[in-house]
Design a protein around this nucleic acid. Structure first.
Lengths: 249, 249
DNA sequence: ATCGTAAAATCTGTTGACAGAATCGCGCTG
DNA sequence: CAGCGCGATTCTGTCAACAGATTTTACGAT
């Protein structure tokens, strides 16, 4: 049974983990718990408590923690334990700069690889996006940005570049989710819709250069708007956390 | 004691691991062993044997293995054990495409961040590069491409973007080393030297757009030449890049 | 009352042992 | 001689216990 990496972690939020091994399952559960905000960012992780909470011994738990460390969802200090990663404005800006390059590459490749069916799927996503903005379709809880996510996610997949897919879907997108609750971007959905249409048009034209440029501008614009709404530009850290969130229980 | 991530793994090959914890040390040792080729790519990893070889129990070893899994230096299957990652031509091409985007971003940022001292350091690297090509300086064993590595490494550092630095120095560069022995690129050092000079010139001019474009061409060219010497091209789309309209901002 | 110090409690790092699964080897059968 | 089944062995996954380090707590001195 392959369980190496490309398991359905980010693919669709509703998938069941259910990995064969216990450490694997724990990894996915903690992964989601951190991104969902159930484990407070910056809070200390107590191995005995977590082990008890998930009804496992510390062995598999520590293996899962070591994997989360490599995904930079937690930090570990020798003999001091683990802490859940924190989200700073500076790192959000850095993430977006990298995202700009990687997604524009994905768009370039996708322009060559997208099938007619893929284009139809993307079209329906954009249509749904519009329907939601106009209030025609009901907005489910998670539905606010989910259609946006799916759009970018499918393009990443169609890059047909496993390494790129991994960086985007398994590393960058999850980290972005850390900021979702903390720094909400104000309403630029109409803007995003327009830009999505342009990107889709470039994909339909099978124009890699155009698709790349469109995506690059799309992400760059999103980054700038996001940073504006956050008040401070990402260069300097905003304000040292007054008090640190305490251990979760 | 912080030992989270930015430990000297790729920085300079000769650093001592000596992490505080045993699992940490093991991780670094195995990391180097795999990249050095001491653990044959594709070979199966026996936990009892490795544990005995490094004189530790299986606990810390498994923790280190789980970290290596996230770095994609090994693959794990439930109840089937671990295998050392393998290097295929296709994945090399994929790596280079991502590298092209990430390093061009790094060059862009470095153009804004490089100090006069940095520029002097880079200049000396280029000079050393030339001396080696002309045979003026002795070529040490590892010295063949080390100067090239240092050049790119310093530029990555000067991006001042921790996330980008991590992707390049901790993930992409190590994976590239997997191919170093398997697919040697024939002699393009003179070409590389010229392109390095151009990149350095753009950095000296504090010209982000130019630095980005130069680096992008540099990596793209290296990828094409590399794939040519490998006989088979690693991807489906061979040479549809007669000339490419670089995206500018 | 505050600060410093020492003992107690807790936590992390590590080890060894056990249970289930997979692989290997051997003998049997066609 | 090839293919298959079955037992033995090895390996992976998991757990509980120990040792060193750290944090907390209690106590006494200033």
């Amino acid at each position: 049974m392959e369980l190496s990496d490309d398991a359905p972690i980010v693919t669709t939020p509703g998938v069941a983990p259910a990995g064969g091994t216990l450490a694997e399952r724990l990894f996915h559960q903690l992964f989601e718990a951190i991104l969902q905000g159930e484990l407070a960012p910056g809070s200390k992780i107590s191995e005995p408590l977590l082990a008890q909470k998930y009804s496992v011994s510390r062995g598999p738990l520590r293996e899962a923690l070591h994997r989360l460390q490599e995904r930079h969802l937690i930090t570990r200090s020798a003999n001091h334990g683990s802490r859940v990663a924190e989200a700073t404005p500076a790192s959000l800006s850095e993430l977006f700069k990298v995202r700009e390059m990687l997604e524009s590459l994905a768009a370039r490749e996708a322009a060559l690889n997208c099938t007619a069916e893929d284009l139809m799927t993307l079209q329906s996503m954009v249509d749904l996006h519009e329907a939601r903005i106009l209030g025609t379709a009901p907005e489910r809880q998670t539905g606010l940005s989910s259609v946006d996510r799916d759009f970018h996610f499918l393009i990443a997949q169609r890059s047909n570049n496993p390494f790129l897919i991994r960086l985007l879907c398994h590393e960058l997108y999850p980290l972005l989710r850390l900021y979702r609750s903390k720094y909400r971007n104000t309403d630029y959905r109409k803007r995003a819709l327009l830009e999505h249409r342009r990107i889709l048009g470039a994909l339909e034209d099978k124009d890699p250069d155009m698709a790349e440029m469109m995506m690059r501008r799309h992400i760059a614009g999103a980054r700038e708007r996001r940073l504006e709404t956050m008040g401070d530009d990402g260069s300097a850290q905003p304000k040292r956390r007054a008090k640190r969130a305490d251990v979760q229980r």
